[in-house]
Amino acid sequence: MEIIIYGITNSISLALMAIGFSLTFGISGLPNFAHGAFYLLGGILTWIFLNQLGIPYLVAALLSILAIGAFGFFLYWGLMLRLRGLAINEVIATLAVAIVIIEVLRWMGFSGFSYVLPPFIRGSVNIGGVWVDNQRIVMVGIGAALIVVLYLFTRRTKTGLSFRAIAQNERTAIAVGIDPDWTAALSLAMGSGLAVVAGLAILPLGAIDTEMGYDILLYALAVGIIGGLESLPGALLGSFILGFSQILVATFLRAQWQTVVTLAAIVIILAIKPSGLLGKYKELEERV
């Protein structure tokens, strides 16, 4: 029972971490290696708004989501646009952005027990003999809601449809009047905003630690790669596989094995089935 409940909450939290990354990559092919840094920065920004400026929690949260989203948007226009086309420069550049953010935050000392975001609802409930924090339930709720909203967004709204159009065939999409740069910038903004949403849902479970900036990126990569980097159902499948295996490993071996399993999963999946378990892009790869 414990394994099931922890497995589910852990999987949803992984899905939350990964969803922004997968969204951006799926739409514009932009691997945002600063994803984890945005997650961290969003959390710390909220903390500052909350504790040093005395802004109410909800407002502080919204402000940070918007701020990081805007940062993502301008990062695209300011930097990524100059490098577009060379996938690897994008990786190097976003990784560099991540390092700058994380290392500066580390240097400023945003780590440890005094940096805690309060949970949305205190207390815990008993589910089938296991005590679960209310925050975890809220987190599962946010995760589930987000997945539904994103699904509807990409299928029902005009912006969402243009996202999918770009993802499927950039040239045809341009021909019918979709601006790829605008879409890509928007996707990066949304992905960055989602990183903060994830941070706000998950961070209240523990103290903020700057090392998370790197860890979250790895988790997002792992989830995406296991499931297939460009598909939403894939991301979901990936997070459940990874979520449960982490919990199983932590229960039967030691907690340290969690990271090893995560990292090994990335390497093994890439060596065996690079398109991920649900990815179909390998088949439709570049035409000869």
Binding site: L79, R82, L83, N89, I92, A93, A96, V97, A98, I99, V100, E103
Partner: peptide
């Protein structure tokens, strides 16, 4: 990191 970004751009 900053040098990387600067040099790339």
């Amino acid at each position: 990191g900053l040098i990387l970004i600067g040099a790339l751009a």
